[in-house]
């Protein structure tokens, strides 16, 4: 499938996958990210059930420490 990830087109091997699978595929730590799909926040407790489909707009913000 083809999604728009952080504003860039990205081809993924599966036709659909959960947010959790997407994060694993991208190699990012789920406890350090905020994820929005089509402008809606996905809470961490839904990472392993919320499905991402072809054409979705996905924003993944990775946080690093410091403040």
């Amino acid at each position: 499938m083809k999604i728009r990830l952080n504003g860039q087109e990205r081809i993924l091997p599966n036709q659909r996958q959960t947010v959790g699978e997407l994060l694993t595929f991208l190699g990012v730590r789920p406890e350090r990210v905020a994820v929005e799909v089509n402008g809606e926040i996905v809470s961490p407790e839904h990472f392993n059930s919320f499905m991402v489909y072809d054409g979705d707009r996905v924003e993944i913000v990775s946080f690093v420490g410091g403040g």
């Binding site: 406890e31 350090r32 990210v33 905020a34 961490p44 946080f63 690093v64 420490g65 410091g66 403040g67």
Partner: peptide, 8 residues
């Protein structure tokens, strides 16, 4: 300060 707390 913490990345995990920012995300949460």
């Amino acid at each position: 300060d913490s990345a995990e707390r920012k995300a949460a």
